[in-house]
Computed example of a mutant assay.
Amino acid sequence: MTFKKIRQNLLFIPIIFLINSCISYSFTGASIDYNKVKTISISNFYNETGLGPSYISQEFTNKLQDFFQQNTNLIIVEGGGDLQIDGSIIQFDYKPLAPVAGGNTEYANTDAAGVEQLIITVKASFLNISDDEFDFDNRSFSQNAQYDPSVTSRVAAEPELTDEILDQIVLDIFNATVANW
Rank of each mutant, 00 (worst) to 15 (best):
T2C: 09
T2G: 15
K5G: 00
F12W: 08
I13V: 14
I15M: 10
I19L: 15
I19D: 02
N20I: 06
Y25G: 06
F27A: 11
T28V: 08
D33G: 09
D33K: 09
K36W: 08
K36T: 09
V37Y: 09
T39C: 07
I40G: 02
I40A: 02
F45N: 04
Y46E: 11
E48M: 08
T49E: 05
G50W: 04
G52I: 08
G52E: 06
P53S: 15
I56C: 07
Q58T: 14
Q58D: 13
E59P: 02
F60D: 04
T61P: 02
L64Y: 08
Q65V: 15
Q65R: 12
D66K: 11
Q70D: 13
Q70S: 11
N73P: 03
L74R: 00
L74Y: 04
I75D: 13
V77I: 09
V77P: 00
L83S: 06
Q84M: 13
I85S: 04
D86Q: 09
S88M: 08
I89M: 08
I89K: 02
Q91L: 12
D93N: 15
D93S: 13
K95C: 03
K95S: 11
A98D: 14
A98L: 13
E106P: 00
Y107P: 03
A108G: 13
T110E: 14
D111W: 13
A113M: 06
A113F: 04
G114M: 01
G114C: 01
V115W: 00
E116K: 15
I119Q: 05
I120V: 15
I120L: 11
I120S: 03
V122Q: 03
V122I: 11
A124M: 09
S125A: 10
I129C: 02
S130E: 14
S130V: 08
D131S: 07
S142A: 15
N144E: 14
Y147Q: 02
S150A: 14
V151S: 13
S153I: 02
S153W: 08
V155S: 12
V155M: 10
A156F: 10
A157T: 03
A157P: 03
P159M: 06
P159D: 11
E160L: 14
T162W: 00
T162R: 09
E164N: 15
I165L: 09
I165Y: 08
L166Y: 05
D167Y: 08
V170H: 01
D172K: 10
I173E: 01
N175F: 09
A176G: 10
T177P: 02
A179G: 04
